[in-house]
């Protein structure tokens, strides 16, 4: 479903991703782990075209983008890819000038071209899926961080994506609000949604993921099932990383 071949990303002279080869099947829940600056978020953003790729290729749902395509063509295809993938951001990035419901229905109206009442209907269904129907008329500023992030998830879900990308969805939350967001993500996982999650929630990674990808310095160091990654990390770098994060 998602495939990258030799995907590289450079910012100026700094190479953030080195020839990443990735293969993700439908229904997989992949957790990307690694120290900060290892390129996890950049990889996620490349998959969604929020960062342009410097070399290599990406294929999502048989839509292929390669670095050698013309800019126009690349942008056109990236737009197609984005319409089949959802993204949830660390800082939520809700539209502050729209209500919770408005945040969810915006792209239903603009991109899917649903008419108003239909969009409302779908929007309400999505909000109730994340347990926030009663907050539909609130502006984001009146919602807690956890609630905002759940609206963010509802917004992504509404577009009926094949895959949802989560970029550190709980990192900006107060500890007591993390659980409600993880619960929503778990229920999505149980429903069979394909998910790629950058996170520092080790417990979530261990319980929910079917695959763990460990990255460091822009390279994939290790790929395995969570059980063996957490119990028997193969590389020294992964061991070091785990010993650091597991101490707390």
């Amino acid at each position: 479903m998602i495939q990258t071949r030799g995907l590289s990303k450079t910012f100026g002279t700094h190479t953030v991703l080195h020839e990443i080869d990735l293969n993700i099947q439908a229904g997989e829940i992949v957790v990307l782990l690694g120290p900060s600056g290892s390129g996890k978020s950049t990889l996620l953003r490349c998959l969604n075209g929020l960062e342009d790729l410097s070399a290599g290729s990406i294929e999502v749902n048989s839509i292929e983008v390669t670095s050698t395509m013309k800019l126009k063509e690349r942008q056109q295809r990236m737009l197609q890819i984005r319409r089949q993938t959802g993204m949830v951001f660390q800082q939520f990035n809700l539209y502050p000038h729209k209500t919770a419901l408005g945040n969810v229905t915006e792209s239903l109206r603009m991109v899917k071209k649903l008419e108003r009442t239909h969009a409302r209907h779908v929007g309400e269904r999505m909000l109730s899926r994340v347990g926030l129907l009663e907050k539909k008329d609130q502006y984001p500023s009146r919602l807690s961080g956890g609630q905002q992030q759940r609206v963010g998830i509802a917004r992504a879900l509404a577009m009926e994506p094949e895959i949802i990308l989560f970029d550190e969805p709980t990192s900006a939350l107060d500890p007591e609000l993390v659980g409600e967001v993880l619960d929503v993500m778990k229920s999505l996982a149980q429903e069979g949604m394909t998910m790629i999650v950058v996170t520092h929630e080790m417990k979530f990674a261990r319980q929910v993921a079917n695959k763990v990808i460990f990255m460091d310095e822009g390279r994939i160091i290790e790929q395995s099932d969570p059980e063996s990654f957490f119990e028997r990390p193969a590389t020294e770098r992964a061991q070091r990383f785990l010993s650091k994060v597991m101490d707390y």
Binding site: N48, G49, L50, L79, R82, R83, T85, G86, M87, F89, Q91, N93, L94, Y95, E106, S107, M110, V111, R155, A156, M159
Partner: peptide
């Protein structure tokens, strides 16, 4: 910038 990215991520064009 997150506002633009959120809109792009839901498939909106840059004009939208």
């Amino acid at each position: 910038k997150g506002q633009t990215e959120a809109a792009y991520a839901t498939g909106m064009t840059s004009a939208q």
